[in-house]
Write a protein that binds this DNA or RNA. Structure first.
Lengths: 214, 214
DNA sequence: TCATTAGTGAACGCGGGCGTTCAACTGAAC
DNA sequence: GTTCAGTTGAACGCCCGCGTTCACTAATGA
């Protein structure tokens, strides 16, 4: 039996650039218009590719959708890697983290992606699971590690840092989460209040030294 | 010119029971399968009604969807009215409220409704707005009033009760919110931890008298 | 009884989109 | 150059669902 590499070495090789163009066009359409409203024909046109090529690469529409989700989760993972650690007082550091996180989560693309994944999760529950692992859970683990070091250094007193992460992030989002998903535009002033309020409450609950409200 | 009531007084009256049956069947299908995946034919069959009757009552599919949302929001409103006030210590009351709220929000129907409304909000932003007003904002106002009385009675010290409501509710939900929307089953133990944790943090941030962690 | 309006069932036109087929072409490896 | 696989465009069959039409029946008030 020949290896996969050998198998692929005969004849014209598949064009990976086309594959990527297809995925890019598909992801854009799927996450903007939804699964049902996306037509393979339109994706093919957007990608500058024949419809048959899409079927050759991915088999059917469902598989194309799954591949688009994988791709999106991968880019999400990579964009979560490079979180440079902020410096300053405890409050300043928490605030900086909160601002970065909220900014990341309130982007239009993110909101639409969230809506789509949630809607399609019913058709295929593995989609939602993949998203949770690639995004939220990954974020929680990373953030909890950060809190652990703050606990170790004696700044914070927290039993369950994973739970504390959830509390902090949830408070920062507040109802902004709902507002984004249900079409309300971002309100910068309200976001400020939510972040500052979250930092206040978090410090009062977990900071070892008193930290005055600003 | 005759009034609407007079206009309708001639000929066979419209059957309101059929109208209701249509709405019930439509709502079920729309919020389980989504707008695109719902067929008028199937709704008609489920409601035991002719397809033409649906078009006579509602005009087109979009209007039927809007009417279904209205109906669902109305039932949501009514189910939020009858929040009997809990008694006991501060912690006990907060915990009881949190449990009721989480139970309300984690029902399968609610999760599906959330998903659908979010997905269809893009087609028609007024849908999302209507939902926010009928559900979350209404809840926040009611809950904030409750906190106001607790502040007035000297139990709590809160500047912005609306913000405090968001913080408390968000902490209770934690990531459970995401987990529901993305297909994870309810984890009762985890929910307990989140509620207890939320009450802890909330009390430490806002309670006037120290209240020990349980 | 009779006019008027509501509801039924069946059929139809229409558009759209999925997935397939086929003959032709292109390009890399040998 | 030959071979083999990827790519293309066009056409096709197919199914589905929206919204309409029509002839007919059912309920109500005058």
């Amino acid at each position: 039996m020949s290896t996969a590499a050998e198998k692929r070495s005969i004849g014209r090789p598949a064009d990976q650039a086309k594959r990527e163009a297809i995925l890019a066009a598909a992801a854009r359409s799927f996450f903007e218009k939804g699964f049902a409203a996306t037509s393979i024909e339109q994706v093919a046109a957007d990608a500058g590719v024949s419809k048959v090529t899409i079927y050759n690469h991915f088999g059917d529409k469902q598989a194309l959708f799954a591949a688009s989700v994988d791709r999106e989760c991968a880019t999400m993972r990579s964009s979560l890697e490079l979180t440079s650690l902020p410096t300053g007082t405890l409050r300043q550091r928490l605030t900086a983290i909160a601002e970065a996180m909220v900014a990341f989560l309130t982007r239009d693309e993110m909101v639409q992606f969230d809506r789509r994944i949630a809607a399609e999760t019913e058709r295929d529950p593995t989609i939602g699971e993949a998203f949770l692992e690639a995004g939220p859970y990954r974020m929680r683990t990373a953030f909890a590690g950060l809190l652990d070091t703050m606990v170790a250094s004696g700044e914070l007193a927290i039993d369950d840092t994973a739970l504390a992460v959830e509390q902090f992030v949830s408070m920062c989002k507040g109802m902004g989460d709902l507002e984004r998903r249900f079409g309300r535009p971002v309100d910068a002033e309200l976001e400020r209040k939510r972040i500052d309020g979250a930092v206040d409450v978090f410090c009062r609950a977990y900071a070892v030294e008193e930290c005055d409200r600003k």
